[in-house]
Simulated assay, not measured.
Amino acid sequence: MRSALSRTKARAALLQELEEAMRRSSAQGVLYGQTVANVAGIANSDLECMDILYLEGRVTAGRLAEVTGLTTGAITGVIDRLEKAGLVRRERDEKDRRKVFIAVVPEAAMKIGQFYVPMQQAMEKVFGAYSDEELRLLLRFATEGYKGVLAATEALKSLLDTPPEKRPDLKLKKLRRQP
């Protein structure tokens, strides 16, 4: 009985440690992205939208709004800023001229990508210590983790459709500024 209890406690401690490591890694990734955005002279949210465009490929503004959860008006502003910075371009559909796609400018993506080289090199060094089997496990973990975060994000977004008076009370006390 005791060993089962100690195994349960050890697993709980391991899961806690893993969660904290993931949170640190996630937070550092956000901070790294913010630093890249600062160096590139664009907003972090705009850089994240550019990354989504890079991963998704050429998409419509509506699809980008859908993927990011931003309104179409907000996405128009993001696209305008990214286009002005020379990072993306609008491309008309060959078959339906009313349809406009947003595409990353490859040369601009390469310039932004240079800022990620130190992080990629650090990760390649980390990954180099793992076997192919371990890398497949990490890939499965990252893929399933992404799906879990995506589902949690969708659930959280559903609160936006809930009348404010029926939402959980999350009001934080205002902090007083010290003179």
Rank of each mutant, 00 (worst) to 15 (best):
E144G: 03
E91V: 15
M22P: 00
L31P: 00
F141N: 12
E56G: 04
K157G: 08
E134N: 07
P163I: 07
M22F: 11
S6A: 08
V117S: 06
L159P: 02
G41E: 06
G57Q: 12
T72G: 15
Q114E: 11
T8W: 01
V104L: 01
I102F: 00
A85I: 05
T153Q: 13
F127W: 13
L15M: 11
P164S: 07
E91S: 09
A40R: 09
D161S: 05
L55P: 00
R136V: 08
R97D: 05
G69W: 01
P118Q: 14
M119Q: 13
G113W: 01
A142I: 03
L175Y: 02
D132H: 13
K111T: 06
V88Y: 02
E134C: 12
K99D: 00
V88H: 00
G73S: 15
D51K: 10
K125I: 10
L172H: 12
V105K: 10
L135K: 15
A37H: 01
A142P: 00
V59L: 08
L55C: 09
R140I: 13
Y32H: 10
G113F: 01
A10W: 06
Y32T: 09
D51G: 06
A103E: 03
G86Q: 02
M50Q: 02
L87N: 05
M123F: 13
M110T: 13
P164I: 03
K9T: 14
A10G: 01
A61M: 14
K111A: 15
A40L: 08
V149D: 12
Q114P: 07
E133T: 15
L150A: 13
L175G: 07
E165R: 08
P168K: 04
C49W: 00
F127N: 14
R92A: 14
F115T: 04
L70Q: 14
G73T: 03
F101A: 11
K9D: 15
L138S: 00
L14V: 01
I75C: 03
R98F: 06
R97L: 06
T68F: 05
N44T: 06
V117T: 15
R92C: 02
R2Q: 04
Y130P: 02
K174R: 15
M110K: 15
I79M: 04
A108H: 03
F127R: 12
K111Y: 02
P118H: 10
T76G: 06
Y146A: 15
V100G: 03
V67L: 08
Q16E: 12
K157W: 05
S25H: 08
E165S: 13
K147F: 04
R11P: 01
P106C: 05
A103N: 08
T35M: 05
S131M: 12
V88T: 09
A37S: 06
T71A: 11
L18D: 04
V88A: 11
G41D: 05
M50Y: 00
A10N: 07
S6G: 03
F101G: 09
N38W: 00
K166W: 05
M110F: 10
R89N: 05
R98C: 03
P163Y: 00
E133C: 09
L18S: 12
G148F: 03
P118D: 09
D169P: 03
P163A: 10
R23S: 08
V30N: 10
D93A: 14
E20S: 14
E20F: 10
Q16P: 01
A129S: 14
E144T: 10
E20Y: 07
R81K: 14
N44L: 11
K171H: 09
S26V: 04
N38L: 06
L159R: 09
T8P: 00
T153P: 01
N38H: 13
M110G: 12
A103V: 03
